[in-house]
Computed example of a mutant assay.
Amino acid sequence: MRRVRSLALIAALVAGLAPAAAAEPAPRLRPHVSVAADIVRLGDFVEHAGRFADVALFRAPDLGHTGTVPAWQIVDAARRAGLADVAADSQAEVVVTRAARIIPLADMEEKVAGAVALSLGVTDTSRIRVAFEAGVRPIAVEPDARGTAIVVRLDHDARTGRFEIVLAVPGSDRSARAGGFVLTGHAHELIDVVVPARMINRGEVLKASDLTVERRARHETHGLTADTVMSLPQAAGLAARRPLPIDRPFRTADLMKPELVERNSAVLITFETPGMMLSLRGRALEAGAEGDVIQVQNLQTQRTLQAKVIGSGRVSIIRQARPVALVRSAPTP
């Protein structure tokens, strides 16, 4: 009998200790909270909230946004819900973040550039410069909305560059409710123009190092014509017909072949006929590039002749109907 009583006493003691051993940890306030739903619940704020975890407390911030809630407010709400003695330690507030999938501005710009390029007939989207208006932020949608953003509508004024575009994200309730996300800004086509890297004086022969290719918005480049120089091969090796200011586009009409003969310079005049070639010294009365026809003076006869520039300081007499007297005849005895 004594043994039975002893066993009963031990069983009672064990039964009395079991609740203490199985007791749940004390509820404690979390310093940071990340939620995916519209509502923040007590279990989001408090560890070990037990059966009170599903009690709704506050609205969550907008998708992708972060807010704070004073710690005392959460402790007070928990107490009113029936969960007392929430340990907050020395916390002053809890940081709450609404989880979201963020579509960055760079991706949004790419979508706008593609749509605008298509509307302008431009095949290279890198030639479209996009600038959103102030206040345009990255798009935030639900974390499980993994669809690629699509263009629903585009209005673009090619003259001013202003655009309004609507992007939608498949699988996003927020996108569906709002009918998409409206973005505004300016988008301009960029073109390559060649400009002098330094001041070019008249007659200077242009080298590739004297020029630079800049990509500018078409609407910012005034006075462009069909013969505006757009590539280095169009200008390199030619001479400036007039002074070319730095950073200013210029035309092919502003260029010429390099002058091989300067005005008033000495030239070698040649005249060639079948079986004979004559050479004599002369003076250029005009400047000229290769192939130009200029006037030269025969220093021996003082006659003015027309000649074609064929090299540096060299000209060739143009054949005429009558023979040209290149050398003064000696008097007859």
Results as ranks from 00 to 15, higher is better:
Val122Lys: 09
Leu42Phe: 08
Lys111Phe: 14
Ala117Glu: 03
Val96Cys: 02
Pro61Met: 00
Ala134Ser: 14
Trp72Cys: 14
Ala77Lys: 00
Glu47Thr: 09
Asp89Ile: 10
Ala77Trp: 01
Gly50Pro: 01
Pro143Ile: 11
Val130Trp: 05
Ala92Val: 05
Arg79Ala: 11
Ser119Glu: 03
Arg137Asn: 14
Glu133Pro: 11
Asp62Val: 07
Val141Gln: 10
Ile74Leu: 01
Val55Asn: 03
Leu118Phe: 08
Ala36Ile: 15
Val86Leu: 05
Ser119Arg: 10
Gly135Arg: 03
Gly121Val: 02
Ala81Asp: 02
Ala71Gly: 00
Leu83Cys: 05
Arg98Gln: 08
Glu142Gly: 13
Ala60Leu: 03
Ala56Cys: 05
Arg59Val: 12
Leu42Trp: 01
Arg80Trp: 15
Gly64Val: 11
Gly121Phe: 00
Ile74Pro: 05
Ala131Pro: 06
Val55Gly: 05
Ala106Glu: 11
Ala106Tyr: 00
Ala81Gln: 02
Gly121Cys: 04
Ser119Cys: 02
Arg137Cys: 13
Gly135Cys: 06
Pro70Ile: 00
Val35Ile: 06
Val136Asn: 07
Ala106Thr: 15
Ala77Val: 00
Ala36Trp: 12
Asp85Ser: 06
Glu47Val: 02
Leu118Val: 13
Glu110Met: 14
Val94Ile: 01
Pro61Glu: 01
